[in-house]
Amino acid sequence: AKYEWTFQTSAQAGDNFFKIEQAWADRVNAMSGDRIEIEILPVGAVVAHNETLEAVGAGILQGHLTDPSYFAGKDPAFAMLGNLVGAWSDPDQMLKFMNYGGGKELFNELVEPYGLHFIGASATGLEAFLSTKPLNGVDDLEGLKMRAPEGMVQEVFARAGAAPVNLPGSEVYTSLEKGVIGAADYTVFSTNHDLGMHEFADNPVYPGFHSLPVVEVSLNKQIWDGLPEDLKAILEVSVRDFARDMVARLEVADAKAVAEARANPDITISDWPESERAKFREIARGVWKDWAGRSDMAGKVYEQVTAHMRGVGLLQ
């Protein structure tokens, strides 16, 4: 192949996302007539999950597929574009903003100075929420010890009355099992289920109300700028298809896992009513506004997102 690239993903090797991402790489290879060959390496293979932005910018990796929230410490705008807590109730709404609502242009404005070009966004779907006790609305969050990762999530939950605990992903299982924490923002329902989390976190909230992370697909900018137009088009179109593919496959996997969980009398799945989701969204919106003031880019994102949401009737 003329172009041989290594991409690092934020997915674990055994995650179903990982295979979907590899399938995307295979399709790019086929569509480009073997001119592009992408090797996808799992999280941590070359650099840590929160160091890929630097690595792609420096050309050590050629690209990444990752949750932009990991870079929230560089610019809060990454968290706002990466996982605007409470904003979307299904991946389609988010993808429409990215593709047709100005999200993509903003994202490129954000990452270009770091030496990256944003090709497009995918999503893992609306995450599920792990809980060891029944959670039926915002009031039940009061005093709840819960794990939340970096980004906006911690702050939103804190404002909703919960007590976020800063734990790495590798400690979630034992901490939930032993009761160090009562709940956790971890990942999608099917993966949680495969990991056996529902054996003790037997009151999951699904569909989740809190988190819909973007999967950002980016390439080193210098490489992008040097590509012929046909390859650029192939990459863009393939990522748009990749997003569809990923969302659909994960919805199928989630549906199966949910059916299995419903058949299990020990697991009670809670589905929040729209009124509770709206309450949580209201709290989250307060946090968006705070974050908007934290950097120029964050302010721009806030303006653009709220304008788009008003335009399509998601906000009054």
Partner: peptide
């Protein structure tokens, strides 16, 4: 378990 997507309890 996290890498291979296998139940950690098992």
């Amino acid at each position: 378990g996290l890498t291979a997507n296998v139940a950690i309890g098992d």
